[in-house]
């Protein structure tokens, strides 16, 4: 029996909510990706119990759901913070000082890449290239592009977002 997929940390998604999403997609096996996307947009990450619940409801072997969720980088199986920071590590951003910016963010938040702050506010991720090289070094926070970043700007922008949280 699968229990109510409540989860660790401060993120959780109720079975009723998952059922609603599944119903919207008519329990179609082919709609696995959009279903997981919708769950992730509500829950910010995909807990183990949620994947088990989805696999049971859609009658898809758990390993298929798991290999799909691990294949795509946009799915996260680890708890994510409220704000997702994506630092670009592409060539153009690299030569314009991207690594310095990334290091500064790591120092400010005291976390590494693919980690979340203990207060669950920020998650730091990297990306190979966002295709907006003219804006480099580029940092994206919650989908908003912050171009021409430098180490001095980092602190003020991070402060803005941590204030937003309150």
């Amino acid at each position: 029996m699968i229990q109510n997929p409540t989860s660790r940390g401060n993120c959780f998604i109720e079975t009723a909510e998952i059922d609603k999403i599944l119903e919207k997609h008519e329990y179609k096996k082919s709609a696995l990706i959009p279903i997981l996307q919708e769950i992730q947009s509500k829950n910010r990450w995909l807990p183990c119990e949620t994947l088990k619940y989805v696999s049971e409801k859609l009658d898809i072997p758990l390993i298929d759901v798991y290999s799909l969720a691990t294949f795509y980088k946009s799915f996260s199986l680890k708890p994510r913070g409220k704000h997702v920071i994506t630092a670009c590590c592409g060539t153009a951003c690299h030569v314009r000082g991207g690594p310095k910016v990334l290091q500064e963010i790591q120092n400010q938040l005291n976390i590494g890449v693919d980690e979340t702050t203990p207060d669950k506010k920020f998650t730091l991720e990297t990306v190979r290239c966002l295709g907006a090289c003219a804006l480099g070094p580029l940092v994206v926070i919650d989908g908003k592009y912050h171009g021409q970043m430098n180490t001095k700007k980092v602190a003020s922008i991070l402060k803005k977002y941590s204030k937003k949280n309150k």
């Binding site: 183990c48 994947l51 072997p61 758990l62 290999s67 691990t70």
Partner: peptide, 25 residues
């Protein structure tokens, strides 16, 4: 059974059970 499968991608690709735990199936 479908207990094992490919997980991750690229250089991290490997064969394992879901969540690296003993599979129910």
């Amino acid at each position: 059974a479908k207990a094992i499968g490919f997980v991750n991608r690229g250089k991290d690709r490997k064969i394992t059970t879901p969540f690296d735990m003993k599979s129910d199936v």
